[in-house]
Design a protein around this nucleic acid. Sequence first.
DNA 1: TACTATTTAATTTTT
DNA 2: TTAAATAGTA
Length: 720
Amino acid sequence: MDVTPILDSLNDAQRQAVTAVAGPTLVIAGAGSGKTRVLVHRAAWLIDVEGVSPQGVLAVTFTNKAAAEMRGRIEALLNIPVRNLWIGTFHGLAHRLLRRHWREAGLPQNFQIIDSDDQLRLIKRLLKNLEIDDSCWVPRDIQYFINGQKDEGLRPKHLNDEGDPSRRQMIALYQAYEDVCERGGLVDFAELLLRAHELWRDNADLLAHYQRRFSHLLVDEFQDTNAIQYAWLRLLAGKTGIPFVVGDDDQSIYRWRGARVEHIYRFQKDFPGTAVVKLEQNYRSTATILHAANSVIENNSSRLGKKLWTEGADGEPIRVYAAYNERDESDFIIGRLRDWIDQGNLRAEAAVLYRSNAQSRVLEEGLINAGIPYRVYGGLRFFERTEIKDALAYLRLISNRNDDSSFERVLNKPTRGIGARSADMIRAYARANACPLWRAAGALASDEFNGRAANAAHEFLNLIETLARDTDGLDLPGKIDHVIHASGLIDFFRKEKGEKGETRIENLLELVSAGGGFEPDPAAEMSPLDEFLSHAALEAGEGQADAWDDCVQLMTMHSAKGLEFPLVFLSGMEDGLFPHQRSISDPKGLEEERRLCYVGITRAMQTLYVTYAEQRRLHGMDSFSQPSRFVAEIPDQYIEEIRPKVRVSRPTRAPIVGRTPIRQGSEVGIRLGQRVRHKKFGDGIILNCEGQGAHARVQVNFEDAGTKWLVLSYANLDLM
DNA sequence: TACTATTTAATTTTT
DNA sequence: TTAAATAGTA
């Protein structure tokens, strides 16, 4: 057996990982250390050298993109298409299992997946139904609560209110939400994972079957697994399955989404005899950039510990620019981008990263003015557009009349005279009789509604029935085409003025061709339509098109994870913005921000600029800020400071040490997040600043007295 | 029912 | 500031 193609291109550590003996393996793969390569080559090694059947390998990732890339690369390496090899996202694989074993999972055969937007709407509707004030019970918070519990594997029955009435309410809402999903045959993202876990947990035979089948489990981005995903993996691994997990504890940036870095720390305990391989050699960045990254991340306490290094050159210093304000910052970045482009480089090889999406605005304005093409990552995706979701809702109703979520969405879209009043009555009836909206509408239409409303309701019910009948024999694109026309959606959007309606219609037509291009799995135990609908929920499509154009890349640091660019700008590096205000006081939150910074720095291959603004217009008010503490964590020797050419003279701010009283009429020591004491209101935190000199005001959130705006020169605040 | 005024709040995002 | 959601009006 010639193993050259599999091992040739690997370094020692990578080779050690790829050829690890058949036992649990934990690969700590630093940024740019060839993580995917190791995973791909490991799969090839198992199949080609160890003689493991492709059937016996399960590879799990977080994104569809990663899954597709892995499959492609494995096939390229082995030079054969590997069917039977299960590669997919956690959600995709869970979905596959649930479709296959819907009975055991306690689901209807035609269950449908709802995305987070559907979920939120469903919760809002639920609150309205139960007549709960949604200003008191914020739908988003409830959604967060429900998903958080599911991520931990907890059902309402597992939860205890601990005597806390608000918690009791949350649990009750969770239960009510579950009931609605159950009735409508709806499954949300977290539910996919939870159900798949319960499926195995409660069906020993089934579990045994899959345990026998999958001898090797390959896991990507292991640091991002949540409790239920990890539990699912451990169930599958059982006593004999061999997990091979790859991750980087320093790049864990999704704690707020349920990801638990701790899994990477406890892996060795859960799987005794684990071989640990560290990949620290970096093939992406200059030594200077790596030194900077290492220095920053060293400030985190809980780490496995790892130091990136390269055989490459030191490269350029990291350039730090202290801008006067956000406009100045943007001008500076654009100037450098210009130079870059003028030197004959590709625009697409430059990326401007920021902490939060709102920061893209100023940059975009500047880029437009400068006539530099750019692309912002992370917009609305195809299957998330309203018009597409409307069309999908019709299709879902055709497949399942009990889908309340879809029913509600299109009941009066286009308007057909079913106003808020009629809709309320339908909801009330459905609630009183614990039946789907569909049945409620039918009952009311032929019974209680007066002429006009009854007509409208009948019209809607008939429309759906007719659509179902008329599309019965059609193929998928035919069905979609018929539905978007016959439902009146096309006409509805045609009336929308401006270009908007036109785009919407184009998108709807695009949906038809998406249906045409969709290849249903012949082995699937469901209709191509249902399969397409699931696919739409599970794979929302590309964010923004034009990826092939040569554009400067604008994105958040989160979305930059996994990418690399020769030229990178980290913008808005200010305390309060990054680290973000909301994470700053929580040590765990701060460490995660620091990891995010580490991710940001390690995106850069050759040139890295770090910029911050001393003054920034935030939420319509000017505020002052200090450079991000992360900037100070980069040793001076790697930094070259660039000062603005023209400085507007303004008071300098002294470093804050101890309790410095604020001098009248000056903003010395003021920064967002600063703790202050007021003689009447007590202790608080500065949220915002405005104006200068005698007019300077600050907004302070007092622990007891709430949030107040104070004029600095009168307030006599003490810094804490 | 559609349009307009007002209020409110303001990370990060994939499935 | 501004986007989105809600309330009010024609």
